[in-house]
């Protein structure tokens, strides 16, 4: 096993990440505006931007989900407890003592266990919670005539807003995590260049050198 600079984020993945970041930012800002927390936009502008960004994000997710499954990249997100305690211990204590991050990226495991769990929960719980309630919310006038529609709408709105708070919290932690480890820059650059340090098995290295020489430096 040896560390190499290997391309782990494809161009689509990087585009996905940054487009998603931008859209989520728009959605958070306009969404909390609609909720009455600020007046940066008129309600009409905020609704239009919010809906446009939401529909665009859904389209992006449709592509992203397709990509995840056709490229088998979904396996990166399978939760595991292996090594979880080490990562958890590191963020709680080790980091203050200047310890080294216990996790090494592997070619088929580019997230540490805590990361993988966080992203999986985001993808399977928070995102569905917000987009499903968002669509139900958007099409309220199609179901407004069922009995107790107002109560249901209130419930839908609550789940939507709760998910928004949770996602905003995720965003803060996500960005803060970039400052841990080597440096902020070292964490961010892979998402631009695609390359990061990965622990490769000799077989993986041999394979990459032969079949995908452009993906290993």
């Amino acid at each position: 096993m040896a560390l190499h600079r290997v391309k782990i984020f494809s161009i689509f993945e990087r585009f996905w990440h940054w487009a998603q970041m931008l859209l989520i930012l728009v959605l958070l800002v306009t969404g909390f505006g609609l909720h009455g927390f600020h007046d940066l936009f008129t309600f009409k502008q905020a609704v239009t931007l919010h809906t446009a960004a939401a529909l665009t994000l859904l389209l992006l997710w449709a592509f992203g989900t397709f990509w995840l499954f056709t490229t088998r990249n979904w396996r990166h997100f399978i939760p595991t407890v292996q090594g979880m305690w080490g990562v958890f211990r590191y963020y709680s204590f080790g980091i203050f003592k200047g310890e080294r991050h216990p996790y090494r990226k592997a070619y088929w495991r580019k997230h540490n266990p805590l990361q993988a769990l966080a992203y999986t929960m985001l993808k399977l719980v928070l995102f569905p919670a917000i987009w499903i309630t968002g669509l139900i919310y958007l099409f309220y006038f199609a179901w407004r005539d069922i009995p107790h529609a107002t109560e249901y709408l209130q419930g839908v709105a609550m789940v939507h807003v709760a998910a928004a708070f949770a996602i905003l919290t995720f965003v803060f932690i996500h960005v803060y995590m970039l400052t841990t480890g080597h440096s902020f820059r070292d964490h961010v650059m892979p998402m631009f260049t695609g390359f990061d340090e990965v622990d490769l098995t000799p077989e993986e290295e041999a394979y990459l050198r032969k079949d995908q020489p452009q993906d290993i430096r």
Partner: peptide, 16 residues
């Protein structure tokens, strides 16, 4: 009616 912008759940907003 529940009107976005006018209505909100104070508990949820506080907890959030």
């Amino acid at each position: 009616v529940y009107m976005p912008g006018r209505d909100h759940n104070p508990w949820l907003d506080d907890i959030g």
